[in-house]
Structures are given as structure tokens and as C-alpha cells.
Design a protein around this nucleic acid. Structure first.
Lengths: 338, 338
DNA sequence: CTGAAAGCGCTTACAG
DNA sequence: CTGAAAGCGCTTACAG
């Protein structure tokens, strides 16, 4: 690859100033220029295959065109769906997304500040709501253009979340309508889980039923698998589970099976979220679908607004609205357990 | 956030030149400086919370510290595991990873060249081996520092892949040893699938068994689900399937179940790769594990070498070596089907 | 309608 | 052991 052309090369070839080329390249609306001059410049650009040097632009405009997306480990399909949508929306608006690992960053205490002070990105998408290091994250989020996922609304924070309580309430109500009375909620620590647990309680209360304390199990299938087995093996009674996420539900699913119980004959299972693998489980998983992709796209959009014009507040992603997807993992309470 | 300090601010505060500060910040090994001068500068840096402006550096050094990772849709856990590892390895070496969508880029024919000519990234990780647009990708890969996944070795290309034939051979041999004789391979188009199909054939040939043509089904669970149902409903015989990836296997799994057959009683199933969800299926999925994370990390490492010192060639990721993980989806051929 | 020139913040050959 | 100055490639206020 030979040395790429610079603005000055184009200007020289076209016989005009760099100023003019720059304004043409950037479609400066205030520019009045003769059509044939413009054509000459265009031709020179094409001939030299000119592409603006992004670092030079970034330096001059103090804008990188980069957004940082900080996650607790990328390896959850819930996140992936959001990241994917965020990347697409960003690309549409001529931004790129950099992946950052919250854990790695937390290791070096001031890595986040370095990123911002060093003008590495124009803004940050931060995945919150899962308890760990939440305070530090919020502190950072207040300092820089950012959108924070799943955090509770707070001053100086731009947040985005689902109507978590409603989603969990819908899931729980579905089980109640199937005749279940002993329903257990499985979540983790953090604000998201707390909101969903509230929805679970609300549904039970509306039906005049008692709620159990949440099983705090983490979010990974391996963790929820173990928690489910422990719960079941300890002889505690439940005819149905509400899992706080589809990934969590996967472990509950395998945990129930490993305990020798059948889904849905012995135990029903439903999760909040709906991810691509849910329909492929055996039996397929019932869910309350939440628009994860929308969340990623909206967050990018809010972040871009935020960069030009700082503003805080909470956005609830509610379009499309949560809806129940009934598959094979929920059924009327069986005669053996009623 | 107030305006961040610049190099000149530090120099002024410390009462030295920018040159000196720069060389201290960058740990210039040729620098001889009095200890107390160095301490003064260090103190000034700390006091002003100085962090180098990354765009200015990028412009000056013609290096962005950014690596592009171009994928066919990020939404496959196989990729995610690689991306995750790539991100970590890059971070360890002070690089960041930008996500790029091959499909989106292909839309604008010269988007890739724009990225490279525009110095957006220092190098490219390109996910190949799946047939579509392979020729264009290779053309690009030849032009810029890059590492290409899963492509067949070719002149001017730096490639990285698994020993695909061996992995598929191990999977197939496992089925043969269980007594299966009618074994079908499920793959997609592209070089990766072709190599795995070869391994499948090799195992069958070694046992003196005939091989069937591959079922070409795509890679997503929805696609392989449909292909499996079509295959089974058409009355074609098979007592076992080898799926080219774990994600593909998920759809085969649900397709078999949806056809009313039992795993492993009626049909055994094994996949190449081993991903986090495999152990949570019902029954759990047998696999031949391949080191996906290693692949991501090694690719980054090769790419970084590649940037300073262009070189082509093929690297086979073989550490840890592929190994059989027997779970519940494979069993000796049953009496009903023998 | 068009151009000369300053400056974004850094690094580095060169001079002392 | 330390500094003045040029230059990376761009944009934009200013002048004409």
C-alpha cells in the first residue's frame, strides 16, 4: 500500500487551496463555489483516492468518532444483542464502537479517567445495574458524556432501562393463571433484579398469594444451575420458577432436569427477556420478550445527543412493549404437585 | 469536566521543555535526566492529572492503537468468545478493538479501503471461511496489516485456523465407536465446513464406511433446525449427526426433538466446538472442544507482529488440542434403530 | 468566490 | 543533560 493522498495533494492536483477542498469534502453548506471548480476537485479526490486522515480530523475537531461500550464480560447473549444493535446504530451515524471490559478497567483504578482525559472516545455506554462497583461507575458516568444501562435514575445520570417490574409481573401472572401457587423468583444482586423481584411480588399480591424471598444466584447458567439444584435438593417446594434473565433461565432449566424433575410436568419455568436460544431448548422456554436490540440502538442515540448537549434523565425502553411468549416450559400445574 | 491539561501545561508547571516531559511520559530509554528533574516532572503530571491526547499521538505517530474486528454478525457465541479474548489480549497490549460488521461494510463497496486509507485502525481481524464475499475480503486482507480467520492458506495472507479436519474426525470416530453406521454431517458453505467434512469422511473411510453428502444448512440454529426437520421428515435415514458448530448443533438438537425423536435413544448428536450452553441442553451436548479464546488472543498477537513486520503464512491453533467431551447426546446405537 | 496562515497536541531530529 | 522548532494532516476565522 503506497502512501495515501493528503488534502494538500488533492489541492495541488486540482489547482486550488486546501481550504476549498476541505469545505467540499465536508459539504460545507455555506460554501459558494463554481460548479466546474467543484467538479475539478471531485475528480482530483477520486483520482487520488483521497480519504481524510481520521486522527488529524480527530485532533482538529476534538472528536474521535468513537464510543466506548463497557460491559461486565461480553459473554452473555443478552449483551451481545445490545452490542450488535449499538454497533449498527453507531455505524449508521458514522461512529464506531470500542469494546471495554468493566472488570479489566476496574483493575487499574483510573483507567476510565485515562480514557476520557486522553480523548480516547467521545462518550461511554456503561452497563450498570448489577451491583458490583456501581458507585464508581456512576461517579464516572457523571463526569463524561454517557448513558448508563439499568441503573436506577439518579441526578446527573442519563439512564436507560426496561419496565422491569412490568415484565416480571407479566411472567408471574402467567404462572398464576396456570394455577401455580408456589412460585420462586431467581435473580442476582443489583437494581435490575430488585425491580423485577418487585414485579413478581406485585403479581402475587394482586392474586392474594404469598411471595418467597428471591433466590440470589448470579446471572450465568453455571451459577443458576447450581443454585437451582441446591434449592430443589434441599426439599424446598416450588411448582414454578421465574428467572430474571434468559441466560439465567438456561441454568435453571438444566438444574431442574439434573434434579430428576420434568419441565413442565413437575416444574414450570419462565424468564424475562427472549433470546435466540430460548426456542431451541427442550422443552422450549416461555419468556416475556424485551426489546434488547432497541435498547442498544436507543442508548447510542441518546449518547450522541448527550455529547452535543448534556442532559440527564431516565428513558424507559418500551417499544415494542414486553409481551408474553408461551412455549413448552410452562403448563398448568400438574396433578402430582397440586 | 474542565479542560484537560496538555503537555505544555505540564512543562510550564515543571519549568522544563515539552521535549523533556514527552520523553519522560514515554519512558524514552535513551533519556539521561537528573533524578530531581524527573521527580518534578512526575509531580507536575500527577498534579495536573495529565493524560496524553490520543488523537494527537495518533496523528504524530501514524498509529491509532485501534484494531478492527470484522465479523459476519456478532450474534454467535462462537464469535463472542473469540472477540472477548481478542479484546482482552488487545487491552493487555494497549490496543482497543472496534467492532465492524462485514455485511454493513460490504454494502458500501469501498468502506474497507476508507477505513484503511483513512487510518481509522492499525490493522484488521477478518472473519473469513464462510463463503460469502470471500474473494473481496482476501483482496482487502492483502492490502493491509491483517489476520484472517478460517480462510485457506494463500499467498500474501496471514491466516489462522483450527485443525478442523482432525476435530471433525474425532467427533465422527466417537460415533463410529458407539456403533453408528449411518452418520450425517451438517455444515454450511465455505472453507471451514469443507475442511470439517473432509475429517468426517476420513473417519468413515478409516472404518470402511460410506459417507453421505453433507447437509448444507447454514450456521444459525433456526436454519439448522429447519434443515434437520426436512431431512428427518423426508424419511432419510441417520442414527447420528455431526454438526459443524455448537450453534448449528443447537438447531439440530431442537429439530430432532421437534421431529418426535429422542436424543440419544433414537439419534445421537455431536458438534465441533464447545460453547458455554452445550452442557445446559437437555440432554447435554457432546462436543469436540476447540480453543476459541486462544484463537482470538493469538490472532491479535499475530496482527500486532504483522503491523510492525508484514509476513504471511498460516497458523494452526492447536493448544490446547481438540478433545472429546462426552455428554448425554451421544450413546451406543439403540436396539430400535440398529 | 477563493486563499494564506494559525493552531489542534504531540514527537523527534537537531543543536547546544 | 536540556530546549527551540518543525511538522504530522486537518479545519476555520479572517482577509481579500
Amino acid at each position: 500500500m503506497r502512501k495515501p493522498a493528503r488534502l494538500a495533494d488533492v489541492a495541488k492536483l486540482a489547482g486550488v487551496s486546501s481550504t476549498l477542498v476541505s469545505r467540499i469534502v465536508n459539504n460545507d453548506p455555506t460554501l459558494r463555489v463554481r460548479d466546474d471548480t467543484r467538479d475539478t476537485v471531485r475528480a482530483a479526490i477520486a483520482m487520488l483516492n483521497y480519504t481524510p486522515h481520521s486522527s488529524a480530523r480527530a485532533l482538529r475537531n476534538s472528536q474521535t468518532g468513537l464510543l466506548g461500550f463497557a460491559l461486565h464480560g461480553v459473554n452473555d447473549p443478552l449483551y451481545v444483542e445490545m452490542v450488535d444493535a449499538a454497533q449498527s446504530e453507531a455505524a449508521r451515524r458514522n461512529y464506531s464502537v470500542i469494546l471495554m471490559n468493566i472488570e479489566e478497567l476496574a483493575d487499574r483504578r483510573d483507567a476510565f479517567h485515562e480514557i476520557m482525559l486522553g480523548h480516547r472516545v467521545d462518550g461511554l455506554l456503561i452497563h450498570g445495574g448489577h451491583g458490583r462497583g456501581e458507585a464508581e461507575l456512576q461517579e464516572i458516568a457523571r463526569d463524561v458524556p454517557s448513558v448508563m444501562f439499568n441503573a436506577d435514575a439518579a441526578n446527573g445520570l442519563r439512564t436507560v432501562r426496561f419496565d422491569d417490574a412490568r415484565a416480571a409481573e407479566m411472567a408471574t401472572r402467567h404462572l398464576i393463571e396456570l394455577g401455580h401457587r408456589e412460585i420462586v423468583f431467581l435473580g442476582d444482586i443489583g437494581a435490575t433484579s430488585a425491580r423485577r423481584y418487585d414485579g413478581y411480588r406485585r403479581a402475587l399480591a394482586a392474586a392474594g398469594l404469598p411471595s418467597s424471598p428471591p433466590v440470589v444466584a448470579g446471572l450465568s447458567p453455571d451459577e443458576t444451575h447450581d443454585a437451582t439444584r441446591r434449592f430443589l435438593d434441599s426439599g424446598m417446594r416450588a411448582t414454578a420458577f421465574v428467572a430474571m434473565s434468559t441466560t439465567a433461565a438456561l441454568g435453571v432449566h438444566s438444574g431442574i432436569v439434573a434434579s430428576g424433575l420434568r419441565i413442565p410436568d413437575d416444574v414450570s419455568l419462565i424468564s424475562v427477556h427472549d433470546v435466540w436460544f430460548a426456542r431451541h431448548l427442550n422443552p422450549p422456554l416461555s419468556t416475556v420478550a424485551l426489546p434488547l436490540a432497541q435498547m442498544g440502538a436507543v442508548a447510542v442515540s441518546l449518547l450522541l445527543d448527550q455529547i452535543s448537549d448534556p442532559i440527564d434523565g431516565e428513558t424507559i425502553i418500551d417499544d415494542p412493549a414486553p409481551h408474553l411468549v408461551v412455549r413448552g416450559s410452562t403448563a398448568p400445574i400438574g396433578p402430582g404437585r397440586s
